[in-house]
Amino acid sequence: LTVHVGNVTYHFDNPEQAEEWAKRMAKKYQGQIHVKDGQFRIE
C-alpha cells in the first residue's frame, strides 16, 4: 500500500498502518485524504 504526501511516497505492508498514517498526515497538513486504487493521497 502506498501513501503519497505531496511528492513523498511511503510504502506500507499493513493496510491499517497505511490508513492510520494517512489520517495523521492529513491532520498535520490539514489536507484531504483521497483513496484510489489502494493508494492514499494527501492533498
Results as ranks from 00 to 15, higher is better:
E19A: 12
A18N: 00
F40V: 08
V35Q: 06
N14I: 09
V35N: 06
R41Y: 15
Q30A: 09
E19V: 13
Y10V: 04
H11M: 09
T2Q: 09
F40W: 13
D13F: 07
K27C: 09
L1P: 13
P15K: 13
G38E: 05
N14T: 14
E43Q: 06
I42R: 01
H34R: 08
Q32P: 03
Y10T: 01
I42A: 05
V35M: 12
F40P: 03
V3A: 02
L1F: 15
F12W: 02
H11C: 15
D37E: 06
A18G: 07
A18L: 06
H11S: 08
G6V: 04
M25S: 02
D37A: 01
Y10G: 00
H4W: 13
I42K: 02
R41I: 15
H11G: 02
V8E: 08
Q39V: 12
G6R: 04
P15R: 14
G38I: 02
E19H: 13
E19I: 14
N7A: 10
Q17G: 06
N7G: 13
G38L: 04
K23E: 11
V8Y: 12
Q30I: 04
V5A: 08
F40L: 14
H4S: 13
I33F: 06
Y10H: 04
Q30S: 12
F12E: 00
W21C: 15
V5T: 01
K27G: 07
T2R: 06
E43R: 03
W21R: 00
K23W: 07
Q30Y: 06
K36H: 11
I33A: 04
H4E: 07
K28C: 15
A22V: 05
A22E: 01
E19L: 15
G31Y: 06
V3K: 00
Q39G: 12
K28A: 05
I33Q: 03
E19S: 07
E20H: 07
I33M: 06
W21N: 01
G38V: 02
F40R: 00
D13A: 07
K28H: 08
K27S: 12
I42S: 04
F40N: 04
R41K: 08
E16H: 14
H34G: 03
W21K: 00
Q32A: 08
A26G: 04
I42M: 01
N14R: 10
L1S: 15
Y29A: 02
R41Q: 11
Q39S: 09
Q17K: 12
P15Y: 15
A26F: 05
H34S: 14
G31H: 05
G38W: 02
L1E: 02
D13K: 12
V35A: 03
V3F: 03
A18D: 00
K28L: 12
Q39N: 10
K27V: 12
V35G: 04
R41S: 09
H34L: 14
H34C: 07
P15Q: 10
K27W: 07
A26M: 05
E43T: 08
E43C: 15
E19R: 11
E16V: 12
H4A: 10
V5H: 06
H11Q: 07
